[in-house]
Design a protein around this nucleic acid. Structure first.
Lengths: 210, 210
DNA sequence: TAACCTACCAAACACTTGTTAGGGAAGGAT
DNA sequence: ATCCTTCCCTAACAAGTGTTTGGTAGGTTA
């Protein structure tokens, strides 16, 4: 009985926000609908329907449809980078870094599946809008982290050096993140188990060695 | 294979068809815009703009925005299955079949990049509509072809048997098709070259062997 | 000449979209 | 009781949507 205790309304910064608990519920259903049908194809009435209120009422909590999307994506990316930065700061070798990044990614997919699906679908054209410039930033950091790890590994002789590193980067990146399109939490495999098998395929290949 | 004939501009009977050459141009630009911004986010006025005519004029050539999408997707799938069926009928072993399927896929991406991008983005929810039921059919055939090849290979000892075949299937499938999101025809690598490197990664892995 | 066909335009149609304005019920604080 | 805050509803708005209708320039055929 400790979860519904204090009301942190006055503790937040400048922007006065209504009760953050209802907000979270609404954002969760909005994310679910965005992920299922795409941002543009999702009407604000549909979100309201799914959440059990009327379209106009959403504007008590948010000032636009776009800001819902914004909040969903930035919350996801914040958490993602918390995890990634921890991995990158740990001083692992290239192979261990790759393994940790992949595992962390599948954990994020587990926690933020709708947000990841939306990101995959919309980030490319959203990144052009000034409001979503942080998406482009994130993509650059992303590339730096993964490509750097792959290059370090190739130089250290733990990853194959005969591959186009950029192709390998896209290969690993896509391999991991498209999983969000079919992954369902609570399924047969845990995020860690999926990460283990994916890593096994990416690192060792699916062919039998002789 | 999916549908009836190839020119569905039939308000009455398919007695006469307008010049198919202009049709092809319009479909190509429509596919390009759909791929760039998503089907729902694309207005019919935007397509017309890009093609150099007015929105209403598109309805001389097509009877709806949806039928443009239909024609783009089914044309792509028809060609894809021509290639796949040829491979599957060739009587290759599992490994050669996999290699041929991957190579053929990258060739299709090269030829139908916009259609592939649209397919990736929209097929999931389109498949629920009766009109696009052939998308679901195609996906089932797709799964049978790839999964069957992987199973045959695991049984024959050329693919690893310790992997979840379903995971491996999704791994290979996604790995190949997401390439459409970044591939640009006329780039540094030919489809065959990309296929070669992807196959090398999928089959042998990116780690150095000892 | 006239009739005809192709490929388009101009203007509107009905409908959906995101968003806003004003109001009101519930409940706690004073 | 009075006030205030929270959360939602009703009802509308203007802009944008896919689509239809009727017309027409220009070429081809009779």
């Amino acid at each position: 009985m400790t979860d519904n205790g204090s009301v942190p309304n006055s503790k937040k910064t400048a922007a006065e926000r209504p009760a953050p608990e209802r907000r979270g519920e609404l954002l969760a259903t909005a994310a679910e609908v965005f992920a299922a049908h795409g941002y543009n194809a999702t009407t604000v009435r549909r979100i309201a329907d799914e959440a059990g209120l009327l379209a106009g009422s959403l504007y008590y909590h948010f000032d636009s449809k776009e800001s819902m999307l914004d909040e969903i994506l930035s919350a996801f990316l914040d958490e993602l980078w918390d995890g990634y930065d921890a991995v990158l700061a740990a001083g692992f070798g290239p192979r261990e870094t790759l393994e940790a990044l992949v595992t962390e990614s599948f954990r994020e997919i587990d926690r933020h599946r709708p947000a990841v699906a939306i990101y995959q679908r919309e980030s490319r054209h959203l990144a052009r809008q000034p409001r979503f410039a942080y998406l482009a930033d994130s993509q650059r950091r992303f590339e730096r982290a993964w490509l750097g790890t792959l290059r370090r590994g190739a130089a250290a002789g733990v990853f194959r050096a005969d591959l186009d590193v950029r192709l390998a980067y896209r290969f690993v990146r896509d391999t991991v993140w498209v999983a969000a399109s079919w992954y369902r939490p609570g399924g047969a495999h845990s995020p860690e188990e999926i990460a283990r098998q994916y890593l096994s395929m990416v690192l060792e290949g699916i062919a039998v060695r002789e």
